[in-house]
Design a protein around this nucleic acid. Structure first.
Lengths: 353, 353
DNA sequence: ACGAATAATACAACCGGTTGCATGAATTAG
DNA sequence: CTAATTCATGCAACCGGTTGTATTATTCGT
């Protein structure tokens, strides 16, 4: 059996409390005593039981992480990198990450997230994919659990960390326009998510700025997955194949877009340019390399933990909003629009489906 | 303050124990009493405190998940999918996943993993990337914590779940040979990991079977990352550029390999075929699609949880080994060896960098 | 109708820590 | 030299559940 505080106390002829205080560095215990305690702890490999500590202190040193629900679920490398950085940083602050797996059942989408929040197992919570009107906010606030969102939230009282979605998207789309593109399709994320909205807003701003009217026939909504991007692109192509560039709201969808375009017989970037968003490492390893808007993914992960820790420590009672810089990352998937007529040959789109 | 058992007991004029037993479904409490208890619990939203339960029962309903250490860390989509499935399945069994972030400091590579194992916070542990002689096995066994590895482990007393690495690799490489390839390079994983070893073994078996001698000049070891694959391929090309196919031990390295080949002016698959391993979704979204050996990644995740649960329940005291079927998945990255000289035209590769 | 078996509930210890307050010893001040 | 401080430690309650056993109320057999 692993040694307990009481074991240590008995061996040293001390009381539990003294031993506990010695290990906690309480100045009231004599230096000599502390040394004896620490030495013994070292020798017999004593480790405080975090469960018991949790019960006594009501703090668990665990951060809950609500990962996205299906369908995006955990299939986006973005989240892996984010998660890695968050985990590292959490550890540095003495916390562990407890995952809340997605439910999948549409009925009560956030059931497991809220279950975890209620569980008293965690000191704070990180949430992802905020919706424009996110029911979780009210619940969490009512129970007083500190929480931070990855992604912008309307409610000014909620803390969040996000990449600079709107400006990033606008900048990148403006580059397409500067290259001469006029008809730029857009594959957005789910309409109810703030990330979709803000990136789409950037797209619209860039177009407006250039005096190009928004054409909703060449806008389709995906779900941030490859298949979603693929299908959205297919549907756009059914409407209108006379497009010279596509902006996808994340890289993973951009991969799906590229596939759909190829199946339509289009060559990237000769016939059509593709632009992603996120900057996952894989953008560098596809051919052509995917131009994208690079978010500092790891930094998002570590920042969000830092913000949450700050909230949990109660240092800052007011909400914290942090916007991290994003940067256009060039790639072979973007080029000036080709001469009209070059795509003619490919009108008989034969999908490999 | 959230209601406690004692609160409930007071309201109902019962004792804590009766309330506890009522909720636990103990047959000793009267049906009528149970109904009253359940009704009240429902009404005031009572939820047992898992920390207190953990202390009393010594079970936490949490599974520790030791994710790979750097450099692979969490950058491989394989792990996300694995993790998602494991999380789902764990939830189905009433468990949550607690992540142990990688350390990164070479000194004590597994420190945080073992720290978590010792913490008494978890009921069992899932470990990844077993080494051929893995120090963690001894430690875990000594402390009596149930654990399961993702990937084969030599020690017959250790439970593990794995894809059929050797046969999968051998089959796939044999296909290359059947297409006419004779000089097949291999980018392996780190030499000390069993996954590298078993896949490399399959490669060697296939060659031997076909009477092709193993040429170590066209074998290089990567680290399961894109960059690692890229560098390994570069180094092979420095030695010998007269290769017609490459087998990479995982898909992510295969992407790196493809990049290195392109930078060398080679066209895939005309000049050279590329074969991966894992079957991550992205293999379908690169151009050409990457031929690979598809592992049932989600099934690996759910199976490993099931095996661990079985071990934790003590149903099965003997170690469990489960090998899941893998399957060759064709892709445009593989073709018969071309006539020498076909790749001439593509020598001027212009990246958008 | 009476003792035994049975059903329903209560008591109290325990899990392994933390922490406010009391206690006793050593030190210092008056 | 005694009273007031300071210092070091111990006691005991508490966190919120679980669980073995005692207790009380019923029901049963004969």
């Amino acid at each position: 059996m692993r040694p307990t505080l009481q074991d240590m106390a008995s061996i040293l002829n001390l009381s539990k409390s003294t031993v506990s205080r010695a290990l906690a560095g309480d100045p009231r215990v004599a230096e000599a005593t502390r040394n004896r305690v620490v030495a013994l702890a070292e020798r017999i490999g004593y480790r405080p039981n975090p469960i018991a500590q949790g019960l006594a202190t009501r703090r668990t040193n665990i951060i809950g992480l609500a990962v996205p629900c299906a369908p995006r679920s955990l299939s986006d490398p973005f989240y892996l990198e984010f998660l890695g950085a968050a985990g590292d940083t959490a550890m540095r602050y003495g916390y562990s990450l407890l995952l809340s797996a997605a439910d999948g059942d549409g009925a009560d989408e956030y059931h497991s997230h809220m279950e975890l929040a209620h569980s008293a197992r965690i000191d704070g919570m990180i949430l992802t994919e905020p919706k424009i009107s996110d029911e979780r906010v009210g619940i969490l606030r009512k129970m007083g659990l500190p929480f931070v969102f990855l992604g912008m939230v309307q409610d000014p009282d909620v803390s969040w960390v996000s990449g600079e979605n709107t400006r990033g998207a606008a900048d990148a789309v403006t580059r397409l326009i500067d290259l001469g593109h006029k008809k730029i399709a857009c594959v957005t994320g789910p309409a109810d998510q703030t990330a979709s909205e803000t990136r789409f807003k950037g797209y619209k701003e860039a177009l407006s700025e250039a005096g190009i009217p928004i054409n909703l026939n060449i806008v389709a909504s995906g779900d941030f997955t490859q298949i979603g991007g693929y299908q959205a692109m297919k549907s756009i192509l059914r409407h209108d194949s006379d497009i010279s560039a596509v902006f996808a709201s994340n890289d993973v969808m951009a991969f799906g877009v590229m596939r759909a375009l190829r199946e339509a017989g289009l060559v990237i970037p000769d016939d059509i340019s593709v632009l992603g968003f996120d900057g996952i490492p894989l953008t560098q390893y596809v051919d052509p390399q995917l131009a994208t808007v690079r978010q500092p993914i790891s930094e998002l992960g570590s920042t969000i933990v830092e913000v949450l820790v700050e909230q949990m420590n109660g240092k800052s009672l007011c909400p914290i909003h942090r916007v991290l810089d994003v940067k256009y990352q060039p790639g072979g998937s973007v080029a000036p629009p080709s001469y009209q007529g070059a795509g003619e040959a490919s009108s008989s789109a034969e999908g490999g489906e």
